[in-house]
């Protein structure tokens, strides 16, 4: 009877609750859901629409979007976080709001900046980079 995982088991060894990012050609897209009843765009692969409880179908969003809000975080949330790191809510074009890491850049990043989905961060987080 040794089936329970140790309490200290790392996140990547458990079911991952984060939004799913896929690569499509040169682009990265969010693999989410779209509501068949109200058309709402959903970041997570949920079984029903969180707004109207309508049926959903697979839908891909991105790669482009706009920063809705952002913060530079100075305390590590997880043991492997390297501070400071930037987190943003990104409204993907015709898509859902996504919490994403902002890839380090010398460019100015602010509310309203255009960004695009890119490869997952080293910790596996959805990530955006400043888009021209």
């Amino acid at each position: 009877m040794n089936s329970l995982p140790p309490a200290s088991k790392k996140l990547d060894a458990l079911a991952d609750p984060r939004p799913v990012i896929i690569q499509a050609g040169q682009h990265h897209l969010l693999d989410g859901r779209s509501c068949q009843a109200c058309g709402h765009a959903i970041a997570l692969q949920l079984p029903l629409c969180p707004r109207c409880r309508g049926p959903v179908e697979p839908a891909q969003f991105g790669p482009r979007g706009v920063i809705w809000a952002l913060t530079v975080v100075h305390v590590p949330a997880r043991p492997d976080d390297k501070v400071p790191y930037t987190l943003a809510y990104v409204d993907l074009d015709q898509g859902p709001r996504l919490l994403a890491s902002v890839a380090p850049t010398d460019a100015t990043v602010e509310v309203g900046s255009s960004v695009a989905l890119t490869a997952l961060s080293a910790l596996g987080d959805p990530t955006v980079e400043v888009a021209p």
Binding site: L11, L14, A15, D16, P17, R18, P19, A43, L44, T71, V73, V75, A77, R78, D81, Y85, L87, L99, A100, S101, L123, D125, P126
Partner: peptide
């Protein structure tokens, strides 16, 4: 760690 945004490093202050 079972929450989608917290698993992405979102603390409450953030």
């Amino acid at each position: 760690t079972t929450d989608s945004e917290q698993a992405s490093g979102l603390l409450l202050p953030a």
